[in-house]
Design a protein around this nucleic acid. Structure first.
Lengths: 255, 255
DNA sequence: CGACGGTATTGGTATTAACCAATTGTTAAG
DNA sequence: CTTAACAATTGGTTAATACCAATACCGTCG
């Protein structure tokens, strides 16, 4: 320990939050959580440099190895970026794995963010011709439609319109916070999905709901979810802001 | 160093290969390479347990932390799997971890559509700072750059800028129609890739080359290609028109 | 004013040394 | 013979320390 905490360190410590002795998670997890909230709470803005690893170690009262392990995880998630000789920076965009079937709630939970939604509408009806086609359902089949804005720590992330077969849920009210949780409860959670990503310009409605401007770049992810029997049970369209979201995929190039 | 190498250790050491003192890569990379070849050469078969970390450390003459760092990377790639209290095992099916992610036009091309390109530039140079970062190459490393517009049946589909390490190709002219074909000929075809998709608005240059208008929605696909040793050898940025291109992925439930 | 070069800063690699936590195998008790 | 308790094995976490490598900053020189 080369020197005593300075006044500035004290300030930083308060801004990051001290570690809790009664927390039984590994230290590096706790440090990770502190850094995460510092980012989501805008204590650290995009492109900001974190304090040096050695300083963070002092600050939290842990070794530099522990700090590095914490940072390493956030780098893997695409939240942080390290540059040797320069520093560690907050990445401007969120990276989302395009090849993993996870729900929004799960994704955000994995990042330590608080997922919430604002319901726009929730209705019962019969399949539209387009839905009938994609879900391979007969005309007249009952479906539930859910439309909502998904938020992470209060910030709009995506606009989601989902349609699920009526036979997969007991009622419209079965969906509380997570659609997938509701589907899981009835054993109808999708185990496979077909997903399509395309670019578009946000229209007025989308821009307003996402806190962006008309004509900004946006991403549309359309997904068809299949249950264990190979039947299509869910169709959703999600709109993302282009400047806050990246989709990452790891792939094999076998011939 | 608790005990001397035993006869069995000697055998194992020969099977894995000793570390080379003249190799200037980091030790954990060298250990990683040894483990990789042990797996590809079937010295370690699927579901086999690796020797314990402490034993590997002895074997290679490095610290346990170094061994752990080597293993960690292979776990991230899906090659190995660790089970606390039990051991570290070779994963049975590596490919299954990675999604196949194909573009629509790749599928079209596979169905006999005429894929062609117009070369914009083709040059030899040294890595830019950004390329050095993504390819993990030292400054001054020779690279080849290829820039072209890709067409399907004469219609511009994408604008592609690719950079490959100079050591992977005999010369600039080795690339005729397909970069991958040229890489394959020298045994440097990427076997794994990391791909990022993001939305953007097309600028003047991009719009003109793609036959679109400035401010139209576009997709940027950045890809880093890795060879069998896990070394990054290719970095490419491809711009697509948002209205003519979709990316499709089939995904399965993770875990 | 610009270019060069040293120096301080910052992340990257590596060792040694403990101890914790989960699992597995063995041993002793019933 | 089964089961419970224990011990050994193995990966997981953390510390303290040292040096390397890339970068940024600043002063000096031309």
């Amino acid at each position: 320990m080369p020197d005593e905490p300075t006044d500035r360190d004290q300030t930083l410590a308060e801004r990051f939050g001290r570690l809790n002795a009664s927390d039984h998670r590994p230290l590096y997890r706790q440090v990770q959580a502190r850094l995460r909230t510092a980012i989501t709470d805008r204590v650290l803005a995009a492109d900001d440099a974190l304090p040096p690893e050695r300083e963070l170690a002092n600050l939290f009262g842990v070794s530099r190895i522990t700090v590095r392990k914490a940072i390493e995880g956030l780098v893997n998630e695409g939240v942080l970026e390290t540059r040797q000789g320069s520093g560690t920076f907050v990445r401007a965009k969120v990276e989302k794995n395009f090849a993993q079937l996870t729900s929004f709630s799960e994704e955000m939970a994995a990042r330590g963010l608080d997922a919430s939604s604002v319901w726009l509408s929730r209705s019962e009806g019969t399949v539209s011709p387009e839905e009938a086609m994609t879900l391979r359902a007969s005309p007249g089949t009952v479906v539930y439609r859910f439309s909502r804005v998904r938020l992470a720590n209060g910030t709009p992330m995506s606009l989601e319109k989902a349609t699920v077969l009526g036979s997969t849920l007991p009622s419209l009210d079965a969906v509380d916070r997570s659609l997938y949780t509701a589907l899981k409860a009835t054993g109808n959670r999708p185990v496979r999905a077909l997903q399509r990503l395309s670019a578009l310009l946000l229209n007025e409605e989308q821009a307003e709901l996402l806190g962006a401007r008309v004509g900004d770049a946006g991403l549309l992810v359309e997904r068809i979810g299949f249950n264990g029997d190979g039947a299509a049970i869910e169709f959703s369209q999600s709109y993302y802001r282009g400047d806050t979201y990246d989709f990452v995929a790891e792939l094999s190039l076998g011939d």
